[in-house]
Design a protein around this nucleic acid. Structure first.
Length: 180
DNA sequence: GCAGTGATCATA
DNA sequence: ATGATCACTGCC
């Protein structure tokens, strides 16, 4: 069910399987309010799903730790962590509380690559654990556009070769921004 | 193709 | 306390 245009996507949208959320986020908007109060929106064109404790590529695979605690919380919060010492990764938590699942935003607007989009939008670990609402200054909104399944490319996730059979699952979702 | 980068986590 | 690992990027 497509959300009405510019409708804030909340727990009703995110409290579902991460692969469903990742797929349906394509074509929706990441909305940012900057320090001047100006609001900018960027279309989501690449995502990855991390499914929970059974998923050997998922940070939650070994239970809660200091870093991944947000993943075990309720859906609709930001999970932001630092990767390779310098890049911030932006995820939205999905599924029921207690299930460590999330969707990684890999491409929005002009940016392609999870580290580049956070750098471009000045998103840091300060957002970790915050609800994705207007109050936080960073949220997701329905664009009213449903991307047809035929336009979505499904591939293995990037950089998770250590995850055995889970490395091969088609949990990365890409749509050509030019098609949006 | 591979170095940079430093937090994180398992092991002790 | 120590060492291997790592959901990446940029430059060779």
């Amino acid at each position: 069910m497509p959300a009405p245009p510019t409708h804030l996507l909340g727990p009703d949208f995110f409290d579902r399987p991460a692969d469903t959320v990742a797929r349906q986020l394509l074509g929706q908007w990441l909305v940012v309010r900057d320090s001047n109060g100006k609001i900018m929106r960027h279309v989501v064109h690449e995502t990855e799903a991390y499914l929970g404790a059974d998923d050997l590529a998922c940070h939650g695979r070994s239970g809660p730790t200091q870093r991944n605690g947000t993943m075990f919380g309720p859906a609709g919060r930001w999970y932001v962590y630092r990767c390779y010492g310098l890049h911030w990764m932006l995820n939205i938590v999905t599924g029921p509380k207690g299930l460590p699942a999330a969707v990684l935003l890999r491409g929005v607007g002009q940016w392609s690559g999870p580290g580049r989009l956070t750098k471009g939008l000045a998103i840091t670990g300060g957002f970790n654990g915050l609800a994705a609402t207007r109050k936080s200054g960073l949220w997701l909104a329905g664009s009213g556009m449903a991307v047809s399944r035929a336009l979505v490319h499904c591939t293995p996730r990037i950089g998770v070769g250590y995850a055995g059979k889970w490395a091969k699952k088609l949990l990365r979702f890409v749509v050509d921004p030019a098609a949006l």
